[in-house]
Amino acid sequence: MFSKKTMVIAGLIFLVAANGIVFSFNYIRKSSVYPAAVETVLFFTAPVMEGVTHTTRFAENTWHRYFSLATAAKENERLGRELAEARHQLHLCRESRLLDKRLEGFLEFRETTDHKTVLASVVGREPSAWYQSVIINRGRIDGIETGMPVMVPEGVVGQVTGVSRSHAKVLLIIDRNNAVDAMVQRTRTRGMVKGLSSNVCHFEFALHKADIKTGDTIITSGLDGVYPKGLPVGRVSRIIRRSSGIFQDIEITPFADFHRLEEVLVILDPPDIDTNLLDP
């Protein structure tokens, strides 16, 4: 319909016209009408845009937070588990360290003694408040027999009064039915340590004139045929010298902490055991 030449001319005219229109708009932008028009348009459109933007952002944030929260909850649960596990491991480490410390003491004692010993754990305690005994997890198969002395590195604990195949009953030195032939380390004054079924013991049969002071260490004499000589028993905590009587009234505090007994050593080759001397 149109020749090629006509089409080129029309195109050029269109471009020039368009360019003129654009230039005229730019001119308008500089005029006073343009800002008013912009203001009017923005007045109506911007709040809507703002509202939509806020809503969109709120929705985006909510969605994001929901997922973050869900992720955080899972993370929290995982961290909680890890914390509990870490606490458990820490507890085990602490227990292990304490056990190591205790066993170190036992090992040191075993290295310094010539006696054959076996380590045992305390698994049960005396059911009555009037008597003092414990049950340990070593018995006849470990070489334990009635009458054998039991101790901790700090001092004497008691003696075995009953044995089964794998367990044994130990009567503590603080029991009123137990007695240990002992002496004052400093002056070699002999006496008998007797339990009171409390945390202290009596050192009996020490003559009134004997030189004994508060703080003196009491050790086993080895003469009762149960405990080897020289084992620490306790420290003199109180002395009452009555005007009458030939003996002093001496109270001693045992070195062994009977409330915290967890492991003990049983001496398997005590000096000489006469089982007939034991209480039935």
Binding site: Y131, Q132, G162, L171
Partner: peptide
Amino acid sequence: MMDMISGAPA
């Protein structure tokens, strides 16, 4: 049972 466990007189 208790007599056997305890350190009290049998």
